[in-house]
Amino acid sequence: MMLALHAAFRRDLGHLARAAEGLTRRPERRAAVVRGWVAFRDELHHHHTVEDTSLWPAVRRRTSACADAEVLEAMEWEHGIVDPLVEVVDASLSAPAGAGPLDGSDLAAAVDELHQQLSHHLRHEEQDALPLALRVLTAEDWHASSATARKTKGLRTIPDFLPWLTDGRTAEESASTLALFPGPLLALNGRFFEPRYRRQDRWL
């Protein structure tokens, strides 16, 4: 699930970079860009919140090694860099055209910085933090963190979350990710959630 989320974030970072470069030429696409951005922003915020409040504290309780503590501190520090960048971009994209704090090349520069910092963070998490979590956490720890994620996300977000998570993935990759969810939910996704998601206009 963590890797599937990271893949979705990388996909949307690509969409965002293209949107930042193209919005000045295609301002009529702003609403579609905002729709894609809001989904990315909300999922990233939820992901970081679950990590900071549930996953990384559980890892910290299971280890006392200095090197492990440094990895966890780096994760929190990197969140502290990424999250303000998200807020800056959000303030510009959420405002009416020309009314945000950034526009044109300034917005493109802010998006580029977000792209670089978040991409670095995702790589660092995959290389160091996730292997650490897999090494020290118990099945009960993972279950508790997953329960926190489900509780804080809420059922009302699932119709958008499932198709967003697998958007752009191969059939094999999507099947592997969706296998983590109960069968009845997958039936609803195939019949209702996915078609509805496809009808919604996003990005450029």
Rank of each mutant, 00 (worst) to 15 (best):
M2Y: 01
A4V: 08
A8P: 15
R10D: 04
D12E: 14
G14K: 15
G14V: 12
H15I: 14
A20D: 12
E21P: 13
R26N: 11
P27K: 09
P27D: 12
R35T: 05
W37H: 03
A39L: 06
D42M: 00
D42Y: 03
H45V: 04
H46R: 09
H48Y: 01
E51W: 01
S54L: 02
D68T: 06
E73Q: 06
E73C: 07
E76T: 15
E76A: 13
H79T: 07
G80D: 10
D83I: 02
V89A: 06
P96E: 03
G100L: 05
G100N: 04
G100F: 00
A110P: 11
D112M: 02
E113H: 07
L114V: 10
L114K: 05
S119M: 06
H120F: 11
D128I: 09
L132W: 14
L134S: 05
D141A: 10
H143V: 10
A144W: 03
A147Y: 10
R150I: 11
R150D: 11
K153N: 14
T157C: 15
L162T: 08
W164R: 08
L165V: 03
D167S: 10
G168Q: 13
T170H: 09
T170C: 14
T177A: 10
A179Q: 08
N189K: 10
G190Y: 03
F193C: 10
E194A: 13
P195G: 12
R202P: 13
